[in-house]
Nucleic acid binder design. Structure first.
Length: 310
DNA sequence: AAGACGAAAGTGGTTGA
DNA sequence: TCAACAACTTTCGTCTT
């Protein structure tokens, strides 16, 4: 069996710098010199764990596969006997008992577990589409499992609960995806995802901090091919904005987009409002509104004008 | 001609009586 | 349960580069 491994990058293809920073949690690899996000959107073809049935197993096999939230039974399924055990049994009574138990066990398991199996396959599909790290995937699976146990899926589609769980997991790990992205990946309308997300987090009492606009910056900046300086300028702007309470109550993506827009103006690598709006999933109007507030309240007018004259 | 700007009306969600 | 409300969107006409 061949296993495709993710190539380890040692040097930045853009500027040949070796100053590479790898953030496993976020699934991102970033060049510290030019700010290029190297692996953010790379496909992970690697196997999640080794196939224990292959012929290289044998002597190396000590325990089973690691337990995992994304295996429908945590990889520790039980089955009462197998039909070959049947012949080891003595009396008729023992045989009766054996079959009864076996039948029941299968009946109980299948309903719930078959659902979980399908659900977790869907979860994996969506999460790999979005290139989410395993930690987030596991968290989402944990949330989904609890939702099923509490009967929260009833009256809702399985897919929307999956999407909601993933959205929540991303937020908890501070690598938020927008509802638009989640919608695109899952094929569920973003309204619906938002609804189930709120419902599930409320019912399961999962508390989630309001997301920090700065969490969106690396991804947006990378999509717009902005330099590291512009990116850190945007973060700087966000910090200033937060200090004077410009950020509360506003949609975090809009603020992040506006900060990036302003930063791109200041650093003379201008992007149109349209371009920034598209990657951030907001409208130009929202960017304009946030942008006006920013330059007014933060007195950035001079900086923007200065770079215009160049 | 493209981009930026701003007014006006509409949408979906939250809040408080 | 309903109405007021804030944030954001859509649409469109006008100004600027």
């Amino acid at each position: 069996m061949t296993t495709m491994r993710r190539k380890t990058i040692k040097e930045c293809p853009e500027c040949a710098s070796k100053n590479i920073y790898r953030n496993m949690e976020r699934g991102e690899t970033i060049c510290r010199d030019c700010g290029l996000v190297l692996e953010d959107r790379m496909v992970d073809f690697s196997q999640e764990w080794r196939d224990f049935d292959d012929d290289s197993g044998g002597s190396r096999r000590r325990t089973g596969a690691p337990t995992s939230e994304t295996q429908f039974d945590q990889g520790l399924g039980t089955e009462v006997g197998s039909t070959s055990d049947f012949y080891k049994l003595g009396s008729d009574r023992e045989r009766d008992r054996f079959f009864r138990l076996r039948k029941w066990n299968i009946r109980i398991s299948t309903a719930i577990e078959r659902n979980l199996k399908v659900a977790l396959a869907e979860l994996k599909r969506v999460s790999s589409f979005l290139r989410l790290p395993r930690s987030v995937e596991e968290e989402a699976a944990r949330i989904y499992r609890r939702a099923v146990q509490k009967g929260l899926v009833r009256g809702r589609s399985m897919e929307s609960v999956i999407a909601g769980a993933l959205y929540a997991a991303c937020r908890r790990h501070e690598i938020p995806r927008t509802l638009d992205e989640m919608g695109e990946a899952s094929g569920i309308e973003k309204k619906e995802i938002g609804r189930t997300y709120r419902f599930v987090t409320r019912e399961l009492e999962i508390s989630i901090k309001p997301s920090n606009p700065a969490d969106y910056i690396p991804r947006f900046a990378s999509a717009l091919k902005l330099t590291a300086e512009t990116q850190s300028k945007a973060v700087e702007i966000l910090e200033m904005a937060r200090d004077i309470e410009l950020t509360s109550g506003r949609g975090p993506t809009g603020i992040a987009a506006a900060a990036l827009y302003v930063a791109s103006l200041i650093h003379g690598e201008k992007r149109t409002q349209r371009e920034v709006a598209d990657v951030a999933g907001v409208t130009e109007v929202t960017i304009r509104n946030r942008y006006k507030e920013l330059i007014k309240k933060l007195k950035l007018t001079k900086q923007v004008d200065k770079s215009k004259k160049k």
